[in-house]
């Protein structure tokens, strides 16, 4: 087996691991179910003429189809989307420290959530008004970064990054301003919880939208793997190889803002995945994006599904915010891998 088919094999195996993991994670929770029950309920749900998201079709059906399955799927989608966007952002700004939130998305989303929770903006209109506000904050900031970066000619990576960081600070300051003057202890607590991320809000209404956008985005980036490779070579080399990266860079920022925006909308802020999973994937398959992107997506999905299981089963009758779990499990594993594998992203070693 040559090198490339080995990589394809690993990716294929991980896909199977992910599917088994998702199936098994249906078993675990405050009520432990048997494999047989799960299988029967899934099949029943699929062949039944009632919509699966209708409650009242028996306790087993409700637990599996309404409580567990949406959040497991959401965890997988969010993990894959964030990891892929992390890879893309690292390519766009040619820096291994980039993550999906770097272009102001994180503080844009936080600002949106803060305004929604503390000032109640939009509370009468949308059921998940905090998510909507966070989505608008995230995407709005990315669009603003792009518009500002376009003033005065070429949009290059450092310019995007610096404008993103500056807008990050403005948004954080505005959030702090609202928090300071609102004097609302409960509100501040719910912002803190919201920022830790959770899949508890998953439902069949938003799942197709988030899933659709994420999967289309991931496929799009995989098809564009050569452009992403080229970004790491830099603008000058790209021109001599026939590619003008300015246009791609902007459309990629926009697309990943949309993907991350929808993930923020449905699951809050989930750090870590978008920064570290790309590196783990690079340790396994190397820098070439046509293997790196699927690898990162699968690892992200596997990690978040696992983190979700742990978050809802570690302490009985209670749920730990998933963001805490990811960092607690993930970060030490990551450090271990870097130390053991003598990993470098490159540069001067």
């Amino acid at each position: 087996m040559n090198d490339n088919s080995k990589k394809i094999f690993i990716i294929f195996m991980l896909l199977i691991v992910l599917m088994i993991e998702m199936f098994l994670s249906l078993m675990i929770g405050s009520v432990d179910l048997s494999l047989h029950d799960i299988w029967r309920t899934i099949v029943n749900g699929l062949i039944s003429d009632k919509a699966v998201n209708m409650p009242g079709q028996g306790p087993l059906h409700d637990i599996i189809w309404i409580l567990r399955m949406p959040r497991i799927l959401l965890a997988g989608i969010a993990g894959a989307g964030l990891a892929v966007c992390g890879v893309v952002m690292q390519a766009i700004i040619k820096n291994p420290l980039a993550d999906p939130y770097i272009m102001g998305i994180s503080s844009g989303a936080s600002l949106g959530a803060t305004v929604a929770i503390l000032l109640g903006v939009g509370s009468g209109i949308f059921s998940n008004f905090v998510g909507v506000a966070a989505f608008l904050g995230a995407v709005g900031i990315s669009v603003l970064v792009l518009l500002l970066a376009n003033i005065g000619g070429n949009v290059h990576a450092v310019k995007l990054l610096l404008i993103g960081m500056a807008l990050n600070m403005v948004c954080s300051a505005m959030s702090s301003f609202v928090v300071y003057f609102a004097q609302d202890k409960e509100g501040i607590q719910s912002i803190t919880f919201w920022l830790m991320g959770s899949f508890a809000g998953a439902d069949w209404l938003t799942l197709p939208v988030v899933g659709g956008i994420s999967l289309v985005g991931i496929l799009f980036f995989i098809m564009h793997n050569r452009v992403l490779d080229m970004m790491l070579f830099g603008d000058e080399t790209a021109v001599t190889l026939g590619m003008d990266l300015h246009y791609y860079r902007q459309s990629y920022v926009l697309l990943s803002a949309l993907m991350v925006g929808f993930i923020v909308y449905s699951a809050g802020m989930l750090g870590f995945v978008g920064l570290l999973v790309p590196h783990v994937a690079r340790i396994i398959v190397g820098t070439e994006h046509r293997y790196l992107l699927p690898m990162a997506g699968l690892l992200g999905a596997i990690l978040l599904v696992l983190a979700d299981v742990v978050s809802r089963s570690l302490i009985e009758h209670s749920e730990i915010p998933v963001g805490i779990i990811i960092s607690l499990i993930g970060a030490p594993c990551f450090v271990y891998m870097i130390v053991r594998k003598a990993y470098f992203t490159g540069g001067n070693q």
Partner: peptide, 22 residues
């Protein structure tokens, strides 16, 4: 750019990548 890249190739002195390629 694509058309000129089919006519002209470049070997320059700057080839430091911040990521490691094979």
């Amino acid at each position: 750019y694509k058309e000129t890249a089919r006519q002209l190739s470049v070997v320059s002195q700057h080839n430091n990548f911040s990521f490691d390629f094979s």
